[in-house]
Design a protein around this nucleic acid. Structure first.
Length: 262
DNA sequence: ATGGTAGCCCTGCTA
């Protein structure tokens, strides 16, 4: 079983690169973030022709999350659902579905902009909603993968230079605690399960100032998996080649493999 | 050098 997640920074701009990726990566499920598409303009038929069903939670100009699957797509959740006081109400940042015998969520955590701003406080509140939603819908015994752009680097070794991020978002104790809370509930960082000691393997590089070529990146795209998946993990890799070439996203795909659950 | 790029859709905002 192969799952992947990729913040594409506009699916309209990135569709050729996504089609290319589906052609070589051989993924069963692909989570996308930042589609920046309305519901009606999502290219379901293009993906169908490539063998993938798709669900999309979009709003148009910003955000937008999707799941592509060639192993089934059922029990779809769009957002946190009714009765939740979503601090980013109106933003399309969560879609989930059951793909075969694994539950998959595609998440785009708010950026937070700057520490101390209202956006930052609402980012932390959004994480609280996510933790509640996960605990309401699933149990740690379920086979579950929450994949996406978490906009948090879990440890200092997950950024190119911790000193460059002093007083910045993505690395604060509160943001890291929000990710840790999901771990405490029963999830593991799949990349770290496979690569406990490997540093400088990032998923995001700013477009500006030649950051990619200088390898000034951050590991902020994560696959958090419950124990039934974690114990079966065989591989995890960042597809850095997808960050190269013509019109790349500023994020690279993260791919994980695990042996069948049954 | 104290900026830089890319995408939204047109103008400044978002990341």
């Amino acid at each position: 079983m192969r799952l992947a997640t990729w913040n594409v920074n506009s699916l309209k701009a990135r569709l050729p690169r996504v089609e290319e990726f589906l052609g070589y990566a051989d993924v069963d499920v692909l989570c996308l973030q930042e589609t920046k598409l309305s519901e009606k303009s999502f290219p379901h038929l293009t993906f169908r022709e490539l063998g993938y069903e798709s669900v999309h939670h979009g709003q148009g100009q910003w955000n937008g999350v999707a799941i592509l699957s060639r192993i089934g797509l059922e029990e779809v959740h769009y957002g946190f659902g009714a009765g939740v006081d979503d601090p980013y109400e109106g933003d399309a940042r969560l879609v989930a579905a059951r793909c075969g015998d694994v539950a998959v969520a595609s998440v785009y955590v708010p950026n937070g902009r700057a520490v101390g701003t209202d956006h930052y406080e609402r980012k932390l509140a959004w994480f609280e909603c996510l933790a509640h939603w996960v605990a309401d819908v699933f149990t740690p015994e379920d086979a579950l993968a929450i994949m996406g752009d978490f906009n948090v680097a879990p440890e200092d070794r997950d950024v190119w230079d911790p000193a460059a991020f002093a007083d910045s978002t993505h690395v604060t104790p509160a943001e890291r605690a929000a990710v840790q809370r999901l771990r405490d509930w029963g999830m593991r960082d799949a990349f770290r399960v496979v690569h406990p000691d490997d540093d400088r393997l990032y998923t995001y590089w700013d477009y500006r100032a030649g950051d990619f070529h200088q390898h000034r990146g951050m590991r902020i795209d994560l696959a958090l998996v419950t124990e039934p998946v974690a114990t079966r993990l065989t591989w995890a890799v960042v597809d850095r080649n997808a960050r190269k070439g013509s019109q790349p996203s500023d994020h690279a795909p993260l791919i994980i493999d695990f042996s069948p659950l049954h």
